[in-house]
Design a protein around this nucleic acid. Sequence first.
DNA 1: CTGTGTGCAAACTCTTTGCATAAGT
DNA 2: ACTTATGCAAAGAGTTTGCACACAG
Lengths: 152, 152
Amino acid sequence: MRSTGSKPAAENARQGQRHKADFAVRLRAAQLRPTQQRLALARLLFSGGDRHVTAEDLHGEALGAGARLSLATVYNTLHQFTQAGLLRQVIVDGDKIHFDTNTGEHHHFYVEDDGVLIDIPGSDVRIEGLPKAPSGKEIERVDIVVRLKSRS
Amino acid sequence: MRSTGSKPAAENARQGQRHKADFAVRLRAAQLRPTQQRLALARLLFSGGDRHVTAEDLHGEALGAGARLSLATVYNTLHQFTQAGLLRQVIVDGDKIHFDTNTGEHHHFYVEDDGVLIDIPGSDVRIEGLPKAPSGKEIERVDIVVRLKSRS
DNA sequence: CTGTGTGCAAACTCTTTGCATAAGT
DNA sequence: ACTTATGCAAAGAGTTTGCACACAG
């Protein structure tokens, strides 16, 4: 992971107000009204580095941060964000859907014991010998999940 | 089914019944009693080539084939088979668990439109540049899922 | 016989949905 | 004002579980 689109700290520091506005602009660009709930979730999701959350995680976090929203809204919002390309879903277990703020090409370690996801930069990994898609189909995405267990 | 009396091992050697006996032996090796239901499912799963099924699929198939068993038993059996190493789970969508009769190293195409899985032989594929597992963890398995969509 | 497996239905988890209310523009 | 989101609670899908009965050894 190099200089991939990360903004220099200077730009962020330039204008204190800009942060909030950024999220609003970003939401608007996705044709989503910047409501309080969506802004709160966007702030939690996109303020720091890349994150992996489940709906429940994020709901709890939002409540803890003082936001007032329902789990249903979190689900709705996560799906809207996903559809808008701000998030991506990661399927690793049958139980929960994980949402990933890193929408670039990359893969995952999955720690089965505690359900934690860890990014593997896509640039590091090369896959060879993959057959091409059956006729009539095209490859939408290639996901690699490296399942980890604690060493005993 | 047929003889209510004792089934001497000699019957296993009988040619005509060899198939069935094979399944019974296989189940027994996994410390699973070869009950009617388990035999019926084993027959459906392992008679032909490799298969991918969901619990509901298999239940419907079994009923269609004249077996009399409940969905709960199918779930129980699939998990027992999985634990015994006869099957393996494939997680590709959050909705259903797919069970794969191919327990060897291989990967999958996943056709998102209709939920169909297609094997990719593991021998064909090579992955390079994968970071090694974080300390304290070890790699249990590497799964590749190639998601396909219909070309428009 | 004795213990294990099965069936049934209820319980459970995660996720989605419908509709009245609230908020955004 | 007019439109779009939200909250709530109920519904929904897939899967699991508890217990009485049935079957395999």
